[in-house]
């Protein structure tokens, strides 16, 4: 029977990771990294946001793009879930709707790498995914 992974294995992996991170010289500057927020409330999850998030993490890593992918709540665009907010340092954040894995791939290739906007942007009066807007 194969050995089951434990936190000990994570410790071993950490050392490799640490050396790789110093090479990339970025870990101290999260504000310089591409930040992606995946909207993960009821509406997003039901529409497959988990698959989108998984895909983004995997694919950005495959292409060696330094990015932080985190979750956020509902941005109020339940009609267009899964939605993601892409924030490239130095640019205004952009929200995309209907982001399945195919769309996510296009966004990585054209927007994040190529720097051009892709179809499917949720426009207009948009002001970043500020969770505080939800509070009373």
């Amino acid at each position: 029977m194969a050995k089951v992974k434990t936190l000990e294995d994570l410790k071993k992996m950490r050392d490799q990771l640490q050396s790789r991170l110093t090479l990339r010289e970025k870990s101290d500057h999260p504000e310089r990294m591409v930040q992606i927020k995946v909207s993960m409330a009821t509406c997003g999850i039901a529409s497959g946001a988990k698959e989108t998030m998984n895909y983004l993490i995997e694919e950005l890593d495959n292409r060696s793009i330094d990015a932080v992918v985190t979750q956020t709540g509902c941005m109020g665009y339940c009609h267009s879930e899964p939605t993601i907010e892409v924030h490239i340092p130095g640019f205004d954040p952009v929200v995309y709707g209907h982001v399945d894995t195919k769309k996510a791939d296009e966004i990585i290739t054209k927007h994040i790498i190529g720097g051009e906007l892709v179809d499917g942007i949720i426009p207009v009066s948009y002001t970043t995914a500020n969770e505080d807007d939800n509070e009373n």
């Binding site: 994570l10 992996m13 950490r14 640490q18 950005l60 992918v69």
Partner: peptide, 26 residues
């Protein structure tokens, strides 16, 4: 997990992948 990672970000893809596998196997 964070204690073991000692500053390595928990959002790192390798860490995410590792955790998925670890939960799966356990």
């Amino acid at each position: 997990i964070k204690q073991i990672l000692e500053g390595v970000d928990i959002t790192q893809p390798n860490v995410v992948r590792f955790l998925t596998q670890m939960v799966d196997e356990n």
